[in-house]
Design a protein around this nucleic acid. Structure first.
Lengths: 195, 195, 195, 195
DNA sequence: AATGAATGAGCTTTCATTCAT
DNA sequence: TATGAATGAAAGCTCATTCAT
């Protein structure tokens, strides 16, 4: 009876929504949230400016959607085989996954760093970012507990700092950064070399 | 015709130039490059918009000038008592200075990280940023050479990564970040504790 | 092919048309023509935006239709017991109906005044407004003729001016306007007090 | 010393400010506040859109400035020879001035009516409008007191309503409105005919 | 007859930059 | 050297209207 079925509409809607989110992600990651204009996003997505506002109330909402989408995609990765591994294997795995993820999604990492640096982070997004950080910390702390470090929380922070520092270096220098050497050194520090 | 000597003119010129650079530094650090308008900079500096364009060709040039000024100022800091200290004391001093600078100029550090992450960094600025990074690396490498590390360059990178990671954490979490603990751990790793 | 009779279709058509007109009336009166968006009208009417364009060529046409509907509805009101009343009773009744209508539809009266003041009134709408005015004048003139006023047309205009002035005052001041006193004075002037 | 003297700048500033206010007045009066776009105002004024924001913070501020300017220009008119006239002469004079003013500034009158009808009158403007109304009322009431009307306030309202109604009629119908006849009838009602 | 996704022109506003003085 | 009035391109956003289904 209806001219297009609800499902059809939903399908179409989702399609263009994703078009927009993908384009926005690309631009946010490349040139940052502020410099990425709605016009540019629309052009990149191949849709009209108006359509973006059909899907999202504002530019900020687009950012949140981009964020949510990526977090969802990411989460699978990390939850992998949590309990089949020894603590040291787990830690090594976290490092490896981080590097793989970073190399596969430099834009995404760039975006997160970019956003977490904003003092007045887009209202309602700081929660998202905090959750992300929290998640990572919560995963690492038990490992250092298992390894019987004196102060597992501190160690988790320190471990995070090292990994973040390496990430930052790689993001800035790109190919010129001796990423492999850094990872190896990091693993040595925690005696994670595979043997 | 001209009641002012060349030198006086130059003096005045330099004065207002510095006024502008200081104001721009303040604003860039506080609210970021994009959000700091030329009008706001002019107001903060107490000069006219036009005058800024007498001194600088564009907003980007202002940023570069701010950058250069900062690099210069920073280098003084670091170069201070280069040869009066032992390598370990030097390393400790670098850490301390970094932390002090970061705590005194969080906005500025934020801005540098932010800029160094942009893929198409403002044309001509990547050189400035690279110079900054280079400067730091060049300073650290000899220390590890003096300390007879196996691969001083690698170690310099790794040390930089740790320091950057800590910086990043503090920038993101602010007060909640256990900065003192991190610094202590870092110093421990390089056996820099004052005794 | 068509399981619906022509009449049924017409019925349905008329139904949704009225739904739209009612919703538009409500919104135009509440927030004005310019501020009432087609999307809002559609939502208020519980139909799709597209359907509005099946019934009306443009937003202006909706306004005209609303107008016509209102004129029709109004005329019924006024024409009611035209010949059962004495001229004075009729005049009193006109005043009362005007006040009632105004109090019941302040937004609408506001809109009419607003529209009749636009110099380049929406193309084709001036006719509708003139018709409304004309209707009122045509009804009042015979009364003053029956009351044997020297110049019934002038008197009709003057009577209209008084009623309009009172309306305007009430629209502007709202509750603060001594509407009852004004009406009483008006009736006194034409010796319409019920006794 | 300064490239342009302060006075020169003030002069220039005032000039373009007035250009803008005049253009805005024209458009607001002709097509109303909502429909008059900043682009149209800029074009009418022969300046850039940007310049308007150099002078006013927003479209609403332009409206307020238009309003203030007109109120100022108007006030002289009314304050004329307040105490040299008898109450009846004063009342006649008020009528005459109103008509003259209305015929000379139809746009202005249209604008005031338009604005006083807006339910959610631009924030901060309702005070202006109320002041205007109040001013007029305060001038008329003492006249009816002097003429020993039973309820001077009521009579002032009623008188105002009649004058407003006539104004409204003339604004709507223009040339077709028997304005002279209406004025004559009004004067008759208050026995103001010059003899 | 009916839907709602999609468009594009136009809205108010901002801001780096120019220019007459 | 210095000013600040002025510009114009582009920003985020709204909305009447179109169109495939």
């Amino acid at each position: 009876m209806s001219p297009r079925t609800k499902a059809q509409n939903e399908e179409i809607r989702l399609q263009s929504r994703n078009l927009i989110i993908d384009a926005a992600f690309e631009l946010f990651a490349q040139i940052g949230f502020e410099k990425a204009s709605m016009a540019a996003i629309a052009k990149e997505a191949g849709v009209s400016k108006g359509l973006i506002y059909h899907h999202f109330e504002s530019k900020e909402e687009v950012l949140k959607a981009v964020f949510d989408g990526l977090v969802a995609r990411t989460q699978d990765l990390w939850m992998a085989d949590y309990d089949k591994l020894s603590p040291r294997q787990l830690l090594a795995s976290i490092i490896d996954i981080t590097v793989q993820f970073m190399e596969a999604n430099p834009g995404w990492v760039r975006l997160i760093v970019h956003l977490s640096l904003q003092e007045d982070v887009i209202a309602g997004l700081s929660d998202h970012i905090d959750a992300l950080r929290q998640g990572k910390a919560m995963q690492v702390k038990p490992i250092f507990e298992a390894l019987e470090y004196e102060d597992p929380i501190k160690e988790a922070f320190f471990f995070g700092a090292k990994l973040d520092g390496i990430t930052l270096g790689w993001l800035s220098l790109g190919e010129a950064y001796p990423i492999d050497d850094m990872i190896q050194k990091l693993k040595e520090e925690y005696q994670l070399n595979e043997n």
